[in-house]
Protein backbone atom coordinates (compact mmCIF):
# COMPACT_ATOMS: atom_id res chain seq x y z
CA UNK A 1 0.00 0.00 0.00
CA UNK A 2 2.84 2.37 0.84
CA UNK A 3 4.30 1.60 -2.56
CA UNK A 4 1.11 2.76 -4.26
CA UNK A 5 1.08 6.07 -2.39
CA UNK A 6 4.72 6.72 -3.17
CA UNK A 7 4.15 6.03 -6.86
CA UNK A 8 1.10 8.31 -6.96
CA UNK A 9 3.05 11.04 -5.21
CA UNK A 10 5.75 10.73 -7.83
CA UNK A 11 3.19 10.96 -10.63
CA UNK A 12 1.59 14.06 -9.10
CA UNK A 13 4.97 15.73 -8.57
CA UNK A 14 5.91 14.93 -12.18
CA UNK A 15 2.72 16.47 -13.55
CA UNK A 16 3.12 19.58 -11.35
CA UNK A 17 6.68 20.22 -12.51
CA UNK A 18 5.95 19.35 -16.15
CA UNK A 19 3.02 21.79 -16.10
CA UNK A 20 5.16 24.53 -14.61
CA UNK A 21 7.93 23.98 -17.14
CA UNK A 22 5.52 23.98 -20.11
CA UNK A 23 3.77 27.15 -18.95
CA UNK A 24 7.15 28.81 -18.41
CA UNK A 25 8.30 27.87 -21.91
CA UNK A 26 5.08 29.24 -23.38
CA UNK A 27 5.43 32.57 -21.59
CA UNK A 28 9.13 32.67 -22.41
CA UNK A 29 8.25 32.28 -26.07
CA UNK A 30 5.69 35.04 -25.72
CA UNK A 31 8.36 37.37 -24.35
CA UNK A 32 11.20 36.32 -26.64
CA UNK A 33 9.97 35.61 -30.17
CA UNK A 34 10.09 38.39 -32.69
CA UNK A 35 6.72 38.87 -34.34
CA UNK A 36 3.11 38.45 -33.30
CA UNK A 37 2.33 35.38 -35.39
CA UNK A 38 5.29 33.52 -33.94
CA UNK A 39 4.41 34.59 -30.42
CA UNK A 40 0.95 33.13 -30.92
CA UNK A 41 2.40 29.60 -31.04
CA UNK A 42 3.76 29.62 -27.49
CA UNK A 43 0.67 30.46 -25.45
CA UNK A 44 -1.87 28.69 -27.66
CA UNK A 45 -0.20 25.29 -27.37
CA UNK A 46 2.33 25.21 -24.59
CA UNK A 47 0.58 27.22 -21.87
CA UNK A 48 -2.64 25.31 -22.41
CA UNK A 49 -0.88 21.98 -21.97
CA UNK A 50 0.92 23.35 -18.89
CA UNK A 51 -2.31 24.26 -17.16
CA UNK A 52 -3.82 20.96 -18.30
CA UNK A 53 -0.95 19.12 -16.57
CA UNK A 54 -1.50 21.04 -13.33
CA UNK A 55 -5.22 20.29 -13.41
CA UNK A 56 -4.53 16.59 -13.98
CA UNK A 57 -2.12 16.67 -11.02
CA UNK A 58 -4.75 18.28 -8.80
CA UNK A 59 -7.32 15.71 -9.93
CA UNK A 60 -4.96 12.88 -9.00
CA UNK A 61 -4.20 14.56 -5.66
CA UNK A 62 -7.81 15.00 -4.59
CA UNK A 63 -8.73 11.52 -5.81
CA UNK A 64 -5.89 10.18 -3.69
CA UNK A 65 -6.67 11.99 -0.43
CA UNK A 66 -10.44 11.47 -0.67
CA UNK A 67 -10.24 7.91 -1.86
CA UNK A 68 -12.84 8.55 -4.57
CA UNK A 69 -12.60 9.75 -8.14
CA UNK A 70 -12.71 13.55 -8.40
CA UNK A 71 -13.47 14.70 -11.92
CA UNK A 72 -14.24 18.38 -11.49
CA UNK A 73 -10.83 19.42 -12.77
CA UNK A 74 -11.62 17.57 -15.98
CA UNK A 75 -14.30 20.17 -16.74
CA UNK A 76 -11.80 23.05 -16.64
CA UNK A 77 -9.26 21.07 -18.68
CA UNK A 78 -11.75 20.27 -21.44
CA UNK A 79 -13.03 23.85 -21.42
CA UNK A 80 -9.50 25.23 -21.81
CA UNK A 81 -8.62 22.81 -24.61
CA UNK A 82 -11.78 23.76 -26.50
CA UNK A 83 -11.49 27.53 -26.03
CA UNK A 84 -7.73 28.07 -26.47
CA UNK A 85 -7.77 27.46 -30.26
CA UNK A 86 -10.83 29.67 -30.66
CA UNK A 87 -9.28 32.66 -28.95
CA UNK A 88 -5.98 32.06 -30.78
CA UNK A 89 -7.86 32.04 -34.07
CA UNK A 90 -9.68 35.29 -33.25
CA UNK A 91 -6.44 36.97 -32.17
CA UNK A 92 -4.70 35.88 -35.36
CA UNK A 93 -7.63 37.15 -37.38
CA UNK A 94 -7.49 40.58 -35.78
CA UNK A 95 -3.72 40.66 -36.29
CA UNK A 96 -4.26 39.91 -39.99
CA UNK A 97 -6.86 42.64 -40.10
CA UNK A 98 -4.32 45.15 -38.75
CA UNK A 99 -1.61 43.70 -41.06
CA UNK A 100 0.89 43.56 -38.20
CA UNK A 101 4.61 43.52 -39.02
CA UNK A 102 6.06 40.07 -39.80
CA UNK A 103 9.51 38.66 -39.28
CA UNK A 104 11.51 39.27 -42.49
CA UNK A 105 12.02 35.53 -42.97
CA UNK A 106 8.28 34.88 -43.21
CA UNK A 107 6.86 33.75 -46.53
CA UNK A 108 3.76 35.95 -46.62
CA UNK A 109 2.49 35.99 -50.20
CA UNK A 110 -1.19 35.58 -49.29
CA UNK A 111 -3.90 37.94 -50.44
CA UNK A 112 -4.96 39.03 -46.93
CA UNK A 113 -1.62 40.76 -46.43
CA UNK A 114 -1.44 42.50 -49.81
CA UNK A 115 -1.94 46.25 -49.78
CA UNK A 116 -5.31 47.63 -50.67
CA UNK A 117 -7.28 44.51 -49.80
CA UNK A 118 -10.07 45.53 -47.46
CA UNK A 119 -11.86 43.28 -45.04
CA UNK A 120 -15.48 44.25 -45.53
CA UNK A 121 -18.19 43.69 -42.99
CA UNK A 122 -19.84 40.28 -43.02
CA UNK A 123 -22.98 39.79 -45.03
CA UNK A 124 -26.17 38.07 -43.96
CA UNK A 125 -24.56 34.64 -43.59
CA UNK A 126 -23.12 33.14 -40.41
CA UNK A 127 -25.82 34.67 -38.22
CA UNK A 128 -24.43 38.20 -38.48
CA UNK A 129 -26.85 40.95 -39.33
CA UNK A 130 -25.86 43.01 -42.38
Amino acid sequence: MIGFYTVMEGVIAFFLIAGGVFAFIGSFGLARLKDFFMRLHGPSKTSTLGVGCVLIASMCYFSLIEGSLSLQGMLITIFLFITAPVSAHLLAKSALHYKLARDPRTLDDIEELKDGEDDEKPNGENGHLP
Binding site: G42, T46, R102, R105, T106, D109, I110, L113
Partner: peptide, 26 residues
Amino acid sequence: DIIIANLQVSKLILDPRGRMSPAFIE
Protein backbone atom coordinates in the same frame (compact mmCIF):
# COMPACT_ATOMS: atom_id res chain seq x y z
CA ASP B 1 -0.10 14.91 -31.30
CA ILE B 2 -0.58 17.71 -28.76
CA ILE B 3 2.22 16.28 -26.63
CA ILE B 4 4.55 15.85 -29.63
CA ALA B 5 3.65 19.37 -30.76
CA ASN B 6 4.54 20.83 -27.40
CA LEU B 7 7.93 19.15 -27.34
CA GLN B 8 8.66 20.44 -30.86
CA VAL B 9 7.51 23.99 -30.14
CA SER B 10 9.46 24.02 -26.86
CA LYS B 11 12.59 23.01 -28.73
CA LEU B 12 12.05 25.80 -31.26
CA ILE B 13 11.43 28.42 -28.56
CA LEU B 14 14.45 27.42 -26.51
CA ASP B 15 16.79 27.21 -29.52
CA PRO B 16 19.32 29.94 -28.66
CA ARG B 17 20.08 30.82 -32.29
CA GLY B 18 16.40 31.09 -33.16
CA ARG B 19 16.60 29.35 -36.52
CA MET B 20 13.08 29.32 -37.88
CA SER B 21 11.40 29.64 -41.21
CA PRO B 22 7.85 30.83 -40.54
CA ALA B 23 5.38 30.86 -43.40
CA PHE B 24 1.76 31.45 -44.24
CA ILE B 25 0.14 28.51 -45.99
CA GLU B 26 -3.08 28.45 -47.97
